[in-house]
Amino acid sequence: MGRSSTQTATRGKRGPFGFILRYLRLAGIFAAASVSAQLEYRTNFALGVLGALLEATGALFGLLILLGDGQSLGGWSYYEAAVLLGLFTFIQGMIGGLLRPNLNKMAEAVRSGTMDFTLLKPIDTQFLVSARNVNIFVLPNLLTGLGVMGWALAQLPGVTILSILGGIVLVGAALTIVYAVWFMLTTTAFWFVKVENITELFNGLFRAGQFPVTVFPSWARFLFTFVLPIAFITTVPAEVLLGRIRPASVVSALVVAVGLVVVSRWLWLRAIGSYTSASS
């Protein structure tokens, strides 16, 4: 079964839909393969669930402290900030589940020269280095993130079907931005070689994304909007989910997402163009 589906997937079909279908199918095969490898370690799962619950409880408790003086958090109430917090947890889970297991291997592959084999495969190389592995141990974090978001959204009156649908689109844009930033950071491995830890820098700063960007003093707000676009990753999608749509920020989020993907693609093509394997 595995073999026949691999064959259909790699044979491919004509036309743009055939192309997309082929890559979706490949992504499915990759995911199934890495999930079955991880199921061997399922005992770790119980502690993972406990960890995710503790983390969510801690974060909600943190909001309680931050709002303890009776003032809002940059104009956000407790439940509104909790929606954002849930979204942040969810996106962090997606980073751990989809980006980290793939992109962190790229630097190592460039240094040791195993990137050669990747470049020889008859599919798009950016797709292959980005979608080969899935980590299922982040599942508890994804679920607590969605749980906190759902619970908080249910307490708020302004939420409609339309705002949720709009929110989903912007969460998609947010994930695209995160992917592009991570991808560009790791692509620098082609020139700088030792960059395993560089994405950790992003993670350190990204933790600011669990708070609405409006809470920060102006110098930090500038940093988180224009230098590292954390505002577009959590604050703007959460605003849309809450039904507080500001067209300017929505359009900017979508433009930033598309722009970063284009730039990251360009960077990747330049990187593999200049790649000369490990020994040379």
Binding site: Q71, S72, A208, F211, V215, F216, P217, A220
Partner: peptide, 12 residues
């Protein structure tokens, strides 16, 4: 990060 958050709160 918390330094920035709390100073932002104090200013607001």
């Amino acid at each position: 990060i918390m330094l920035a958050v709390w100073i932002g709160k104090a200013q607001a």
